[in-house]
Amino acid sequence: MKRDFWVIGLVSLLQGVVLGQLGFFDVQRLGKGLLNLGRFAGEMVPPDMGVLPVAGKALLETVQMSFAGTVLGFLVSLPLSILGTRRLFPEPVPALARLIAAAVRTIPVLLWAIIFVILVGLGPLAGTLGIAVYTVGYLAKIYAELFEGTDPEVLEAVRGVGASRLHLVRFVVLPEGANALVAQLLFMLEYNIRASSVLGFVGAGGIGFVMQVYLQTLDYQRLATLLLLILAVVLVMDGISGWLRKRFLLASH
């Protein structure tokens, strides 16, 4: 109890110091920020629906990029995560697979997009590749951890019938992890839709490019329309993945 008090006290003190250093106690600055926020919000209303055709097209490209990138990333992350599972492969195979995933994950998705713009030029191809690579880093780690949690007794029993490593993956690891596998994939797709909406900032295609133009020209009413469209897509995605989870995933347990 006393120790808990000291820990909470110390963490609060540290948090206070950090917030102070970051300018959180600069009341004048924060007050000015609040006023600006009000003005910014005011200038967004009413949203300009005249940009819907342009924004809709750009948004469709964003959704395409995220969908294709997520699927590509998933296809690569699956074998990589299986190689990263210590219950299936002896060292150094898992360590190497996990190192590759960690290295890929170190670079944020925006930086991957810039790298691919340099490699393949401007446009949605660069964005799709950026999302795919980032997805590999993220899903490979999550899936390797998930597969690591496979019941060792089941693996032992199936290995005992003379099953090969690939059979173990096919008949134990994948079916036992299927629910979490799909749940994480849906989460990744939702995340990628949000993330890919800014990739246009660096010329990697999608709605981000249009967004950047409206920001630079201080065209906040049009920007508001874009944000509403992104919100609508995210809500629809939430709805679809929620329905999928309820329909297919919860039904199996």
């Binding site: 019941d151 007794e153 089941v154 032992e156 029993a157 199936v158 005992g160 019938v161 003379g162 099953a163 090969s164 059979h167 008949f171 134990v172 079916p175 036992e176 299927a178 629910n179 199996s252």
Partner: peptide, 25 residues
């Protein structure tokens, strides 16, 4: 043949699929 205490069955597969695992070798 080895049957562990918790049986080592794959819960998410059907009974027939679990039995067929015995033929994998």
């Amino acid at each position: 043949g080895y049957i562990p205490q918790q049986l080592g069955l794959v819960r998410s597969l059907t009974a027939l699929e679990n039995v067929l695992i015995g033929a994998l070798s």
